[in-house]
């Protein structure tokens, strides 16, 4: 069970959130095909800290970006 540190609501239960995957740069709307493909399929799969998106659907309804360690599940962001 994750306790996710929402910057607006504090530590909240994982079940309140929808996962949005690794945070990535979006391509320009008129980007060339290779760049568009790259941004869709560029793998981001580190063992360790990962910046990722969460949608706090059961709370403030904000998309938030947090850094979590994929081996220990610890969040590196603190709320203070």
């Amino acid at each position: 069970m994750l306790l996710i540190p929402c910057p607006y609501c504090g530590l909240r239960d994982e079940s309140e959130f929808v996962y949005g995957g690794p945070a990535r740069a979006l391509p320009d709307m008129d980007a060339q095909t290779p760049e568009a493909q790259h941004s869709l399929y560029r793998p981001i799969n580190p063992r360790g800290p990962l910046r990722e998106l969460w949608y706090h659907s059961g709370g403030c309804e904000c998309w938030i970006t947090l850094t979590r360690n994929t081996i220990t599940h610890e969040f590196e962001d603190d709320l203070s």
Binding site: L2, P22, N45, L50, E52, T72
Partner: peptide, 13 residues
């Protein structure tokens, strides 16, 4: 579990 992980451990969720 729906999110990236290499932890190989369960969660009650």
């Amino acid at each position: 579990d729906g999110y990236a992980s290499f932890a190989r451990r369960g969660s009650f969720e």
